[in-house]
Write a protein that binds this DNA or RNA. Structure first.
Lengths: 318, 318
DNA sequence: GAAATGAGTGAGCATTTAATCGCACTATGG
DNA sequence: CCATAGTGCGATTAAATGCTCACTCATTTC
């Protein structure tokens, strides 16, 4: 037979194979026959469709145990909303667990017709959320970064989250053109005095919705492993009672921002505690428990998206 | 034996197993270990999670060929919107193909905050759509049936679609308490004269959105196989040029309702052609091609959700 | 112009999954 | 109290899947 159309992209093929497999329930052999390709190729297309996120899988049932945890967290910390996903066991990646729920929460806001300013932090949780996001047209909103996008080595990888999300929803986006953490308070202030920076800062400060990850301040603190802190800075923060970090701003176990160390040189906008506007924290993992509890206490975040084991741990102590 | 927690339902277990399998990417063996059950049991739970619709799978990519068909259908028939899903090959069930897309379209309306009156027909396509619908709170809307729910044998199975959807979204619902087709025009008129019926009819007639399947009038007409038509009635309609049927009302190949046969005794509300409010037709399958084309011509429906082969066929003739 | 690189391909094989079967347990009605 | 139908379970076996490897072909690099 003759394939008249040469105009199918590889991704099209992958999507079609994945569709036939997951929705149509066909075997890879049948797909191979249907599309006139070898079984191996069909298998690769199916794998690829999943890997590239062309196929979305969602759980459509609320586990009773998760619902219980949600209501307890809501009551204990006075949250607007809370979402607890089932854990994936010790082998599983907590980020993957919460990513789809976080994406759903974000979509909830994106679907609103009145224009919103949506501020975002960075980190693995945010990255996972954006990857799980379904592309949709939501140009009415503005996406703004809370945190500087200039990293110590000069790379702009932190730019990624805001750029990727803005790309998926075709919304205007505002990266924060300052260093994540400047060498001196003066240099940080100099950046923030620049008019373009001030405009982004104002936008972020008055955002209608905030999405952030939550960083732990233990040995494996993201800010340390990613090279934004030195070890001595971390120890200085420990001495001051550091419990966690949101958007680069370090707070103690009661959820109050510290006035020492890097906090005097951090660029961008801290997430103000106790406000009424939605502030969504996306975080899961055993090491983050204390950081999450502290952020909830002062209501730096008032919506929490986490997994079952983390939720249990957050509630168990305190 | 001792069951320590009596507080996990079988469905909870199935959902958890399905989550671990599809989202966590774990093997059924790992799940069995994780949950402390046998492999076979894990496998049964996973299967069940899928069968009961606890796991939703969606395609997150638009195939170029489908996009092309969509824009051509939109232009040709002046549609508001059109959605073409990839076909599942000759073995596949067309209803399964379009169900998830139809559900997504319905959810689009359900998510709107201003209250809507949503009118629905019946049939396999509607049933599939409702099954694929994600449960969500949308109490602001009212769900009303376009078609009678009393079938010839007295059963109320047609009630199902409206009831199920209302159950899933917790919205008030209004079944149409009249026979689908009455034995005589007089009896039909008598039913429609009843005040409670009139209220439902008024609601349906002024609905903000309409969702319907499209029935073919060939040998395998749903109205015939489901026992609402006799064969002689079908032949009478053929003689008058019957091409298809929407919500029980039969129209010819130009999409005009006929004034013969059962149309004089059909209960409920016909979908008025050519209106501006969205009227979504959900239909796929080779036998429905003519019925779909006719419904599009007079714009009984102005949004179409179908599959690739059907879309191609609808466009090929005419 | 030749070698290197890298993505894509098909074959064979190990692992994982689905289907079938027989057995035990339970509820229901004689 | 026993018989019987129905349901769920584990073991076995057939099918399907995923993984590795050697190979090709096109493009790049020296």
């Amino acid at each position: 037979m003759s394939r008249a159309e040469p105009e199918t992209t590889p991704q099209d093929d992958a999507a079609r194979a994945g569709w036939l497999y997951y929705v149509g329930g066909m075997t890879q052999d049948q797909i191979a026959t249907e599309l006139g390709i070898s079984r191996q190729r069909a298998q690769r297309l199916v794998t690829r469709a999943m890997a590239e996120g062309l196929i979305h899988v969602r759980l459509n049932h609320r586990l009773q145990s998760c619902l219980d945890l949600e209501s307890e967290l809501r009551n204990r910390f006075g949250l607007i909303r809370c979402r607890v996903m089932p854990s994936l066991g010790q082998g599983g990646d907590p980020v993957a667990t919460v990513a789809s729920a976080a994406a759903a929460e974000l979509e909830r806001f994106l679907r609103q017709s009145e224009p919103l300013v949506i501020a975002l932090g960075t980190g693995r949780a945010m990255r996972g959320m954006v990857d799980a996001l379904t592309p949709m047209a939501a140009m009415q909103h503005r996406i703004v970064s809370l945190i500087g996008n200039i990293s110590p080595d000069g790379s702009a990888s932190f730019f990624d989250v805001v750029m990727r999300i803005a790309d998926k929803v075709r919304a205007p986006h505002y990266p924060m053109p300052v260093p994540v953490i400047s060498p001196t308070p003066e240099e940080n202030a100099a950046f923030h005095a620049l008019p373009p920076v001030r405009r982004v800062v104002d936008l972020a400060r008055n955002a209608d919705v905030v999405f952030v990850g939550v960083g732990q301040m233990s040995e494996d603190a993201p800010l340390l492993t990613d090279g934004f802190f030195t070890r001595s800075e971390l120890e200085e923060m420990w001495a001051a009672g550091a419990a966690g970090e949101v958007a680069g701003w370090v707070y103690d176990s009661s959820g109050s921002y510290l006035d020492v160390g890097t906090n005097r040189r951090t660029g961008g906008v801290p997430v103000a505690p106790g406000l009424a506007r939605p502030a969504v924290g996306v975080a899961a993992g055993a090491t983050k428990v204390n950081a999450i509890r502290a952020a909830l206490k002062s209501r730096i975040i008032n919506i929490l998206i986490t997994d079952e084991t983390t939720a249990t741990a957050v509630l168990s102590q305190s």
